[in-house]
Amino acid sequence: MTTHDIIIIGAGPAGLSAALYASRAKQHVLVIDKSTAGGQVKTTHQVANYPGYIDPIPGYKLASNMHKQAAAYGAEFKFITDIKALHLTGLEKSVELVSGEVYTAPYLIIATGRSPRLLGLPGEQELAGNGISYCATCDGDFYKDKDVFVIGGGNSAMEESLLLLQHVKSITVIHQFDELQAEKVTADKVKAHENVEFLYSHEPRSFEFVGEKVQVEIENLKTHERFTMEKDGVFIFVGMIPNNDVLKDTGIELNPYGYITTNEQTMETKLSGVYAAGDIRDKMQWQITTATSDGTIAALAINKAH
């Protein structure tokens, strides 16, 4: 068993900001992440709205800078690490890893963030990377002059559709509502393309490779009629979900959508000594800047209390 002053779960902008502020205050900090440093930022192609960078900065570079900055002040990191259990109700909080190691601290910050939502439909996992994609920037050129589906009608779906239109011959958007949820300016840009058609009030039900094509079973949500269509590929952009798996049975209070409610002034949850920061927190705006703000506030509150 190893003891620290603060354990931070999650190495995205919120966790790394908290690590920076706490480490600079000479706290003994451990950051644990199931992946590597950066959270969603490392999977962002270019960040154009983070203050201090006049030109857009690649997300992985911003993530790497944040990690190195916190590490330079002494924060310790454990990456590619799966958590078996969190014990958060006592005075001493403990983190039990699948590897058997146990870490304890009087203070713990949850900064586990959010992840892109998967549809969880038959065939989705099997075809990921082989006909189903979640990134137009990455995989758009595999579909040059091809016909593809885009699943979703929010901002990310429409922004990614605009990127895809630089490569593909046509897009068929499958969207569950009667109209797009994306900002009007972006939605209008997509609608202006003649090679985009929309299946409103429809949802996919399954995916299957048929020959060289992906066959999608689609349901009309109004008539409940099901039919199949074939295209060369499918791009899925259907929103985000909070990463709260490790919080089950810990006593942490979640709102109906799975986000953690906190004191706005300190980021402390209803469990004493347990804080939440970043996209896992119940709030109105999910931005890199709001995540770093949350992490800062949590660390400063702990620095003051410790």
């Binding site: 440093a37 999977t43 192609h45 992985y60 990456f79």
Partner: peptide
């Protein structure tokens, strides 16, 4: 790969391993 959103995490995983 490239320095793209799907690739960068995989390089990071290999770096850690």
């Amino acid at each position: 790969g490239r320095m793209g959103p799907m690739c960068v995490p995989v390089y990071g995983i290999m770096e850690q391993l």
